[in-house]
Structure formats: C-alpha cells, structure tokens
Nucleic acid binder design. Structure first.
Lengths: 138, 138
DNA sequence: ATCTTCCTGCAACCCGGTTGCAAATGCAGA
DNA sequence: TCTGCATTTGCAACCGGGTTGCAGGAAGAT
C-alpha cells in the first residue's frame, strides 16, 4: 500500500491523514497475519506504544481495522477488506497453540447463526484453536 | 450440587477433593453464566485469588471446566456438562456490550467447520457480540 | 502572528493473570 | 503415634498488555 492508497483509505473512512497513521496502516497492510499491539511496537520503533494504541483505537472506531481476540492474551488487529464502512468481511481465524500465530481462514465465512429472539448481534469472534499445518508436519 | 456430587465429579475427572476445590466447584455450578476469576474472587472471600486461579487451572487441565474468552478482557469459566473427559458440549456464547454479561446460548451448537487441509482443530471459541434482550428492551 | 484544536511522546498507572516461597495440611510407612 | 515427604494453600510480589494524564509540538483558522 503506497502513500496515495493510504490517504484514499483514510478519506473513505473519515480519518485525517497523519505521518504516524500512515506508518501504522502500512505496517498493518504488510502483515500477512493479524498483528498484536506488541508486534507492532517491535516493528514500528519510531512511534511510542501509546501512539500506536491510539491509532489502532481510532482505526477501530472508523471501521478501518477489525479486532480479533484469539485467546492468546493479546488482541490482534487486521485491516478491513470491505470498502464500505462496515465489517462485512468477517471470517474465521485459527490460532496455533504451538507457534502461537493466528491465521485468517479467509475462504471460510462465519456461518450465519439464528440467535434466540431478542438478541441483537453486532459482531462475531470465531476462533479455532489447534495446530497449524506447518507445526503438525514436524 | 451437594458435597457428594462434587466428590463424584472430582473422581470422574481424576481430581483429588479438597475443601477449596469443593467451594470453587459449587460456586461455578451456582453461577447461571460463565464467571470470571474476579467474579469468583468477590464471591469466594475465603480463598485467595491465587488459590482460585490454581484451582481453575487444575479444573481446566482435567476438563472439568472450559474456558471462554468473550473479549471482555477477562477469561470466563464454565463447568463442563459432558460427563466424559472431553469438551463436546461446546456451544456459542453471547457477550452483551451494554451490561457486559456473557450468556450461554446452550441451544445452539458450534457449527462444524471444514478447515483447510493440514489444520488440526482442538477447540473452538465462538462469541457473538451485541445487545442482550434485557438491555435492548430499554 | 495568535489562537485553537488536534496529534504525539513520555511516564505513570491499572488490572487480570501468574509465580516463588514458606507455612500448613494430608498421607504413608515405620 | 511419630517421622518424613508430597501436596495444598495464602501471601506478596511480579509481569505484561492495555490505558490514561499531561505537557509539548504541529497544523489549521482568523
């Protein structure tokens, strides 16, 4: 994602462009897997933890990223792929208990669940735990 | 759950019975919803946080409870209902963003997912977020 | 240039979870 | 019953992710 794509992304989501935000957005887009705050801290040495955190929070509020809680103890962030303001690109994630990485199973949509009367669903968090192909081969 | 049921439960799961463990097991069985460590701390004033924690860890290792990460920042515990040693009573949970309670949607089983070749699934965590009937009525 | 607002870094804090350690308890064998 | 060992427990301290208060700095408006 180059500078221009970034700005257009921000504009679509109503986020003002700043140098830090561009750096964070690029780091997110480069990641092949959902990343945690601490991973971003390591990757982006130029920005303070709190800055990254606030940027992520802002992105989250503007539906630019979505949040996955894989049960590893730290939350992970992933760029939304849907272009409209809503997270309709929810998919299942897989957390490997051996290498502790989280994978997007992008192909698999979250199954539709018919909830009991009265419940109103706004988002879903569906994480499978187990062993990834790479680790189970060993 | 009375004392005797407790002991039999422990025996089935290979857990030695101690006073503390009985107290924790009873607290879990009395809860209508999955409970967090801090909730148990409030409920069980006679046992130290670390004791409750260790008891829960032990229960988890012996498949006496299962763990739900509802994304609220603290993990919740729930007595397993299946009597064999394995967690085959997985079901969906609902986290209300207003009252911050977690509900078991016991009726709804976790849908079977066919994962890509190579992935080996050991457990699932499926949590819906939204507003519960009680809160949406207001 | 000045004012105001927003953005940022720093340091401190909060809280859930976890561990080391030593005292207490339980249990087996003499 | 006494002794020695293993397990359980409480206490205090720690850890790490997440979060916030504050003050300095940049950006935009008047």
């Amino acid at each position: 994602m180059d500078r221009q794509e970034c700005d257009s992304l921000f504009q679509r989501h109503g986020v003002k462009s700043t140098p830090n935000r561009i750096i964070v957005a690029e780091a997110l887009s480069e990641a092949s897997q959902p990343v945690s705050l601490s991973e971003l801290e390591e990757k982006i040495v130029s920005i303070d933890k709190s800055g990254i955190f606030r940027t992520l929070s802002l992105f989250k509020d503007h539906h630019l990223v979505h949040v996955i809680d894989d049960g590893s103890g730290s939350v992970r962030y992933e760029l939304c792929h849907s272009e409209d303001g809503h997270d309709d690109d929810q998919h299942i994630h897989f957390y490997c208990e051996v290498c502790r990485r989280t994978f997007c199973l992008s192909e698999i949509p979250v199954p539709e669940i018919s909830v009991p009367q009265g419940y109103e669903v706004t988002s879903t968090n569906f994480v499978l735990h187990g062993i990834c192909p790479e680790c189970s081969r060993k």
